[in-house]
Amino acid sequence: MPPKRPVPRRGRPGYDQATVLRIAVDVFNRHGYEATSMGVLADNLGISKSAIYHHVPSKGDLLRLALDHALSGLEGILTESGASSGRADDRLEFVLRRTVAVLTERLPFVTLLLRLRGNTEVEREALERRRTFDHTIAGLVDAARTEGSVRSDIDPRTTTRLLFGTINSIVEWYKPGGPLSPEKLADDVITMVFDGLHLPAAARIS
């Protein structure tokens, strides 16, 4: 019996949905989602527009897949034991540290999420999921204030906004593979958030 002939790949050889999605996210981030047509995507992929439809039904489906990849990583943090047990400040530190880890692991996808404008139903659904995640972190900040483990003299809304601003800004400047590892980045963020810039008195030069 002759061996079965391999089934040819659809689209450009070596491309699968994950590869198409990764390249599409890079293009969305460079040009903006709305300004990116299927023709632009096809040019960047080096395949025809019809070949893209072998992988996804539409540009909107690419966006949905990309945003779900970012959000599922963030939402997954809240199901981990470190996010649900222990002192509130310990849980807050755990969630912030893991958020930095997910952001660096899925940097292009989280970048796309943070740049959404809410112009489509897909974007609005993603923004609602993101708000739910943000509210959970805000709740941890409030719980830590209540238990007396973090300072209460700063307006809680200011604290929450500064936390989000600090972590979200990472997508604009962090370079994966550079001298700053994701682990060291997370350590630095946690130190800045909980200890600030002042040296402990014992470590200061008199």
Rank of each mutant, 00 (worst) to 15 (best):
R5W: 04
P6G: 03
P6K: 08
V7M: 09
P8E: 05
P8H: 04
P8V: 04
R10T: 09
R10Y: 09
G11S: 04
P13Q: 06
G14E: 01
G14Y: 00
Y15A: 10
D16G: 13
D16R: 13
D16H: 14
Q17A: 15
T19S: 08
A24R: 03
F28D: 00
R30K: 15
R30N: 13
H31E: 10
E34G: 08
A35S: 12
T36I: 09
T36W: 00
T36D: 01
T36A: 06
M38C: 12
V40M: 13
L41Y: 03
A42H: 02
D43M: 14
L45D: 00
G46Y: 01
I47R: 07
S50N: 14
A51T: 10
A51I: 07
I52V: 11
V56F: 15
V56Q: 08
P57L: 11
G60Y: 01
G60E: 01
G60T: 04
D61R: 15
L62K: 10
R64V: 02
R64M: 00
R64L: 02
R64A: 11
L65E: 06
L67V: 09
D68A: 15
A70M: 13
S72W: 08
S72Q: 14
G73M: 03
E75Y: 04
G76L: 02
L78N: 06
L78G: 08
T79I: 03
